[in-house]
Design a protein around this nucleic acid. Structure first.
Lengths: 144, 144
DNA sequence: TAAATATATTTGTCATACTAAATATTTGTA
DNA sequence: TACAAATATTTAGTATGACAAATATATTTA
């Protein structure tokens, strides 16, 4: 393959990832969700598996620990999640959603799914499969 | 298509874009380039088309104007670029590379292309075409 | 058991993304 | 021409991402 092409894919990839995030964020804002897209990712992960330590939650969300700490700080301030010290290992914290947090995830989930759907207009199941396969391959190629 | 799938693509897309950036950044750091990946994008755009206004440069790099202002500030401090007031429109600034900046882009370009290549191991020309087509379609679907 | 090592979290710093607002200048219009 | 609207850039504030270092606690090992 020609090198020239390759200098472009990273740009398109980056721009598209940004656009996906922007689109979701502006939908969130417009609908008054009062959370960021990244905060949503953390809330969703906590909803699906309660009682995660911050470390596990970070891995699950694809975020590093300092970033996660800060996002969780915000979720605490918003009353959506709680930190509980793990008495079996006092270095660790378990996180879980408050009732308000659970309600929020349950009520927003279908709307978020709708928002995410929009990206796939004019694309096929096969496109989706190719897309995820290629992304995973790239990820693994670079995951040294 | 099932909604459930769709909640995942944005995650994979985001993680892969991050990984591509991280891989490039750690290669840059390891090789002592002394610039960030985003600073590189701006330098490359300036190298390809000198005399861009900041506004045009921002569009070309896919960055917003405040972000670009700050990146350019850094490039000035590093002695790689210069701002020149456009006398025909004193609101505007033209940007161009210093000699040092030009040398930097010329010498790093082939190494950066190498770094970018790594992502495409085990993938085909057809994959590349599908990938860029799908990314562009998603971008346009969300570009309201 | 004491010291060294490992682990979970937090804090600090810098770079980037986005929004809104401020500033300077130009253009359009009454 | 004077004023309103538009444009280019910068500044400010908040959130996130990456990396290094600090802190507290656990585990391993001499």
């Amino acid at each position: 393959m020609l090198n020239e092409k390759f200098d472009r894919y990273s740009f398109i990839l980056d721009q598209t990832a940004k656009k996906v995030k922007q689109f979701a964020q502006s939908s969130f804002t417009e609908k008054g969700f009062d959370i960021t897209v990244d905060q949503w990712a953390v809330l969703k992960a906590l909803y699906e598996t309660e009682q995660l330590s911050q470390k596990d939650l970070a891995r699950r969300c694809g975020k590093d620990q300092p970033t996660l700490t800060r996002i969780v700080d915000i979720l605490l301030k918003k009353g959506l999640a709680e930190r509980v010290i793990d008495e079996t290992d006092r270095r660790s914290l378990y996180l879980h959603l408050t009732e308000e947090g659970k309600l929020k995830v349950a009520s927003l989930s279908p709307i978020v799914a709708e928002i995410r759907m929009k990206a796939w207009e004019k694309l096929t199941e096969k496109d989706f499969e190719d897309f995820t396969r290629i992304l995973n391959t790239i990820y693994n190629n670079l995951n040294v």
